[in-house]
């Protein structure tokens, strides 16, 4: 980082200026920035810790992460891939679908694959899908929102009209149409979802936030000091809308997982295994008509989808209290 945002004539080189200003700072500026960021992060963490909803969400997410990380260990060292592979595994010693027994803690599905292994394998994939689409949507959305707010005029109009139309798109019907004609696998699906969400509501919300930042005095100060447009957007506007975008990232993870599960449930996506796919398997094999008897076919995956989405949503609500000071208790 060469540019020093606070004062324009410090760019000539710190060793010359130190005696003249003598601010008493010997640390390089990036270190100070780092410390300030860390301090504000610590403060926000303190606020976040207060919210019980947010903390329980975070704990659930960490638990899911640990569960997902177990998968490579289990399949490489503990389980026999021939029996426990989530897609092609088969246990010849049992009648399928088998209720929970010693070797299969959550039973097996109608074609003899272990439910627990499927759950574990899918966890990592769901994380990947949710995070990828959320990161894409938030990065693109933040950048567009900041640009629209900063430049205004034509840029603003174009992106806002696009947002109007994208917000109009009913996502699931649209994805049903796309997915039924192209076989979507997990990466294209995450990217399509991310961009759909990026150009929609998230742009509008982040633009509203960026508009509030834009009129602050320090933006004028930065402009007077000779900061370029791109620099102001990158160094001043985006960091100030970042908490809000982070909040929406959490909500977008929920949306992505729900869309994936729904489409997998209908058998439209080209995904070999996911939580929605597990319910799809149970449903197409006809075992969902007797819920109570074959509970292990639908309950674990259904519960996981709900819990996983709820966890991200809860973290989002906890972050909401960080971002919106008026929601806090006192």
């Amino acid at each position: 980082m060469t540019e020093l945002a606070t004062s324009p004539d410090m760019g000539r080189g710190p060793e010359k200026q130190l005696p003249r200003f003598d601010p008493g700072i010997t640390e390089p500026i990036w270190k100070i920035r780092w410390k300030m960021n860390m301090r504000s992060l610590a403060q926000n963490w303190e606020i976040f810790k207060e919210s019980r909803v947010g903390m329980s969400g975070l704990i659930i997410i960490i638990a899911f992460g640990a569960f997902g990380l177990l998968w490579p260990i289990m399949i490489n060292f503990v389980w026999d891939p021939l029996i426990y592979h989530p897609v092609v595994g088969f246990d010849p010693m049992l009648m399928h679908p088998s209720p929970p027994v010693a070797g299969h803690l959550l039973g097996t599905d109608p074609i003899g694959r272990d439910i627990l292994a499927q759950l574990m394998f899918s966890t990592g994939r769901e994380f990947l899908l949710g995070m990828l689409s959320a990161v894409i949507s938030v990065v693109v959305g933040t950048f567009i929102g900041a640009m629209a707010a900063y430049y205004g005029g034509f840029t603003d109009t174009i992106f806002m009209r696009v947002a109007d139309i994208v917000m109009l798109f009913p996502f699931v019907p649209l994805l049903v149409v796309i997915g039924s004609m192209i076989r979507l696998s997990i990466f294209p699906f995450a990217i399509i979802l991310g961009f759909l969400e990026a150009f929609g509501g998230i742009t509008v919300i982040l633009k509203a936030q960026a508009l509030q930042v834009k009129v602050r005095p320090y933006i004028d100060a930065a402009r007077v000091a000779g900061g370029s447009d791109l620099h102001i957007i990158r160094a001043h506007i985006i960091p100030n809308v970042l908490p809000l975008s982070f909040l929406y990232m959490m909500f977008n993870v929920t949306a992505a997982i729900v869309s994936e599960a729904t489409l997998s449930f209908f058998g439209i996506l080209n995904i070999d295994m996911s939580w929605g796919m597990m319910i799809h398997t149970a449903e197409t094999a006809g075992y969902l008509f007797d819920f109570g008897k074959f509970w292990w076919l639908w309950a674990p995956s259904g519960f996981f989808i709900t819990l996983f989405c709820a966890a991200f949503y809860m973290v989002g609500r906890g972050l909401d209290e960080v971002v919106n000071p008026r929601l806090r208790k006192r």
């Binding site: 729904t262 209908f266 969902l288 008509f289 709820a310």
Partner: peptide, 17 residues
């Protein structure tokens, strides 16, 4: 939150059942 994030194809199946 549970209903908001529930997997609704499954929820509707459960209700039908």
């Amino acid at each position: 939150i549970t209903f908001w994030t529930a997997f609704y194809p499954l929820l509707s199946l459960i209700l039908i059942w």
